[in-house]
C-alpha cells in the first residue's frame, strides 16, 4: 500500500496545520477555565473582605452616584425610544381583528419583562463595565494597586467590594426608571401618533399586568448589576501590560459582561417564569 508522504506531495503543508485550529480551541477552553477559576477566587475574596467596612464604606456613596445616578440618562434615552418603537410596531402588527388595546399590553409586558432590564443592562455593560475595567486596569499597570497593598489596604475591599455593591443596588433603581419611561413613551406615542385614547392603552396595559413582572425585572436587574460590575472589576484587576492591556481588558469586560447578561436573561426566563 502506498504511503502518503505529505511533505513530498506539498512541501508547504505540515501536519501541524491540521492541529492548529484544534490547539487554539484547546487554548481558548483552558483560558476560559482559568478565567472562571480566577473569577471565583476574586468573588470568594470579595465576600471575605465584606467585613472590612472601614475600607469600602467611604468609597461606597460616591460610587452609588458615579455608577448609578450618572447612568440614568443613557438608560432613559434608550428605553424612551424603545417604548416609541414598540408602540408603533405593535399598532402596525395588530391590524384587523386584534383589538387596539393590545398595544398597551404588548408595550407593558415587553418593556417590563424583557427590554427594560436587558437593554439597561447592556447599555450599562458598556458604560459602567468599561469604565470600571479601564480605571482598575490603569491602576494595575501604573502600580497603584500594588501601592494600595503596600499601604496595608486590601485592594479587593477598597476597589471591588464597593463597586459591586453599588452595581447591585443601583441597577434595579435605574431599571425602575427605565421601565417607567419605556411604558410612558409607548403610552404617549399611542395617543399622539396612533390615534388611541389613554383609556384604551391603559386598559391593555392592565390586562396582562402582574406585579410579579416587576419583581422579575428587578431580580434580573440585580443580577446584571452584579455581573457587569464584577466582570469589569475582574478584567481591570487582572490587566497586564500597558495601554494595550487596558484596552483589551475594557473590551473583554464589555463583551463578556454583555454575553453573560444574555445567558442570565435566558436562565431567569427559564427558572422564574
Amino acid at each position: 500500500m502506498a504511503r502518503i508522504h505529505y511533505g513530498e506531495e506539498d512541501p508547504g503543508f505540515k501536519l501541524q496545520d491540521l492541529t492548529t485550529p484544534i490547539r487554539s480551541v484547546g487554548h481558548g477552553v483552558l483560558a476560559a477555565v482559568q478565567s472562571v477559576g480566577k473569577g471565583s477566587f476574586l468573588a470568594v475574596r470579595a465576600v471575605r473582605t465584606l467585613k472590612q467596612v472601614d475600607i469600602w464604606a467611604p468609597r461606597f456613596v460616591p460610587l452609588l452616584v458615579s455608577i448609578g445616578i450618572a447612568s440614568i440618562p443613557i438608560a432613559l434615552f434608550i428605553l424612551m425610544f424603545t417604548g416609541v418603537v414598540l408602540a408603533i410596531q405593535a399598532s402596525y402588527t395588530f391590524t384587523g381583528t386584534v383589538p387596539k388595546y393590545f398595544v398597551g399590553a404588548l408595550v407593558g409586558k415587553t418593556v417590563i419583562l424583557e427590554l427594560g432590564p436587558v437593554l439597561t443592562g447592556l447599555a450599562l455593560a458598556g458604560r459602567v463595565g468599561a469604565s470600571i475595567a479601564s480605571e482598575l486596569g490603569s491602576m494595575r499597570v501604573t502600580e497603584q494597586i500594588d501601592a494600595l497593598e503596600s499601604l496595608a489596604y486590601d485592594p479587593v475591599a477598597y476597589l471591588v467590594v464597593p463597586r459591586v455593591l453599588a452595581g447591585m443596588i443601583m441597577f434595579p433603581v435605574i431599571t425602575v426608571f427605565s421601565l417607567t419611561i419605556g411604558v410612558a413613551a409607548g403610552w404617549l406615542t399611542s395617543m399622539a401618533m396612533l390615534d388611541m385614547s389613554s383609556a384604551v392603552f391603559v386598559k391593555g396595559l392592565k390586562l396582562f399586568f402582574d406585579p410579579y413582572d416587576i419583581q422579575f425585572a428587578l431580580i434580573k436587574a440585580w443580577s446584571f448589576g452584579l455581573v457587569v460590575t464584577g466582570v469589569g472589576c475582574f478584567y481591570g484587576f487582572n490587566t497586564t501590560g500597558g495601554a494595550e492591556g487596558v484596552g483589551y481588558a475594557t473590551t473583554r469586560a464589555v463583551v463578556v459582561g454583555s454575553m453573560i447578561i444574555l445567558v442570565l436573561d435566558a436562565f431567569w426566563a427559564a427558572t422564574l417564569l
Partner: peptide, 10 residues
Amino acid sequence: YVFQFAALFD
C-alpha cells in the same frame, strides 16, 4: 515602599 514611577493615586 517608594515606587519607581511613584504610583500615586491619580
